[in-house]
Design a protein around this nucleic acid. Structure first.
Lengths: 336, 336
DNA sequence: ATGAAAGCGCTAACAG
DNA sequence: CTGTTAGCGCTTTCAT
């Protein structure tokens, strides 16, 4: 037994015919444009209801030469940060802008090729892109085709909403230093354009304190890659007593690897993450982490996107939020 | 300084004019339909590249009287289960179907009203809906307007892909019973149509074992609501020694509440969740949980959606997966 | 307050 | 192999 097949969906013409008016009136009525008498309006709504008419947003966009959909590119929906950004963006979008077309990076290594293309072909009015991996020039190129709001990473000449990673990484590193750690490793992300700020800030801070930095980058942003890098750090001859990880996901991978080796946290190893994810707050995890306020980031990005849509000529936005180190129990003074 | 304003995006006509052929050829070339000579094709692609032409998927859909976009409704993107479902769905969609329009329940209590509407107005070809809160009849109504695939909940007469909650909840409850627990409470979800299976299975299993069930439902699916219900359970006069939670999120809320009260897990309280989330696998959390294979659920849902699109007359799909209890360290024998 | 007509960017017969 | 023509569902002047 199959499904009841829906008939061809009702169109404006159907409604117009039913009521005995022109399509124009129906169009006006549905966008409550001025110039439709109360009676007619009512009759139109009644008929529409009866016929199950639903406006076709795509056709409307086409006619209006105007794109109402918002495109959202996310690198990895499994990372809480991106889910938070999504929530923030949603909150910022007005009811009328509720066509959010999502594109999540498909490939493991996070090449964005097709992902962004599909948003362009869907003719979104603007793309909010979180953690694009493409180099700056490529993003700038794309921005010629469709307005882009870069989230969590500044791109010169492109609307950007991000967190001060330099400060965040410095705070994280200094925290470990202040606890007396000298051998502090950085479990870094892969080195994409625009995503090396945390690493460099860590290295700079270490050198500034007279320590020698040691970065072990993960091959990509997956959990497995994080684990591999963590293992490399923990199994090395000169095991550090502190690790600053590029994000909480990597920090938690390091945590697992540590426990698997019988290392206690923070007894044998102090651990700092980045993101302040919910998981890190759980009893027994209590991960010291840098909060980049992802939801706020998303929210502001959504607002910036709306502004850009309303005024293409407005100055390029450059919103930098200040992150915040949240100290919990995964860090402790270095043993003597 | 503003943004470089993009000129009106190039259209097929522009390309055609540039090359000196008709729009038809351009149209054919881009969908590599047969009947375009190699030379012409090349010339068209070159010109398109030069002009920065991108096909307009919305216009194509309109002309083709055919909807290529897929709508995805998710209740709460912060819950790992939904992120997994999304990943699964994405994996199932062919390259050409990569217009995934997302709609996440906005309101706290999860009323789906506007969410699904926006998908309909976006004229998606099919809606994959995870954990719709609407009653069966409403879903069936919607399915008349646009094909729907219900994920994680069976709806009669509508394509459904779900996990056997009855079996999962039974396994969870029996696990606690077999450990000798007698006072086992259920930290339940809110009682929406189609989402009471776990509770009922728990209650039935309890009664079958001669125990008296005790369900404390959360007001909604938010973390806060879960916490409130958890607190109610733990602060009650007759505190249970085992809790079976509707999902991992609730279980983790109960865990926090327990620790806040100085209760040890599993020493003073055995805890079973549902979802087998990554968080539950972490050292020190080690939550016993029922795995409903969310990603597979999403993947199958995507496949079912494609099938439905290809054959509207195919029999209604009813895919029920078997969940699996994963025992970890949050459960232990009841104290004597 | 209402309607006629043109057009948005694209596809799909149908002709040549 | 290539072009002509007629829409898809909707918006938008411009008349009436």
């Amino acid at each position: 037994m199959g499904l009841d097949r829906q008939l061809r969906p009702a169109t404006q013409s159907d409604v117009a015919r039913e009521v005995g008016v022109s399509r124009t009136l129906v169009s006006f009525a549905f966008r409550d444009a001025p110039g439709v008498s109360g009676g007619t309006k009512q009759a139109i709504f009644d008929a529409a209801k009866r016929l199950g008419y639903r406006p076709n947003a795509a056709a409307a966009d086409l006619a209006r030469k105007h794109r109402s959909a918002v495109g959202l590119y996310l690198m990895d929906i499994h990372n809480e940060v991106y889910a938070d950004i999504l929530s923030g963006v949603r909150m910022a979008l007005p009811q009328a802008r509720n066509r959010l077309i999502l594109s999540v990076s498909q490939s493991i290594d996070g090449v964005d090729a097709g992902a962004v293309d599909s948003l362009i072909e869907a003719r979104v009015g603007i793309i909010i892109a979180a953690t694009l991996l493409d180099p700056d020039e490529r993003v700038q190129e794309l921005a010629q085709i469709v307005p882009i709001v870069s989230v969590a990473r500044p791109v010169p000449g492109v609307d950007s909403v991000y967190s001060d990673d330099e400060a965040g990484a410095r705070a994280a590193t200094e925290h470990l230093l202040s606890l007396g750690h000298t051998r502090i490793a950085h479990l870094g992300g892969p080195d994409y354009d625009g995503h090396t700020v945390r690493r460099r800030s860590y290295e700079k801070t270490m050198r500034g304190a007279g320590m020698v930095p040691r970065t072990v980058p993960a091959d990509d942003f997956t959990q497995d890659a994080g684990m591999r890098a963590a293992v490399e750090i923990l199994d090395s001859a000169d095991r550090p007593t502190g690790i600053f990880a590029h994000n909480d996901q990597f920090a938690l991978a390091a945590r697992e690897a540590a426990y698997a080796r019988g290392l206690a946290i923070p007894g044998d190893l102090s651990l700092v993450g980045y993101d302040n994810s919910r998981t890190g707050r759980l009893h027994g995890i209590e991960l010291t982490s840098v909060d980049l306020h992802a939801m706020e980031l998303g929210n502001i990005a959504g607002t910036v996107a709306m502004d850009r849509l309303n005024d293409p000529e407005a100055p390029v936005a450059d919103e930098r939020l200040t992150p915040e180190l949240v100290v919990r129990n995964s860090t402790a003074p270095a043993a003597m």
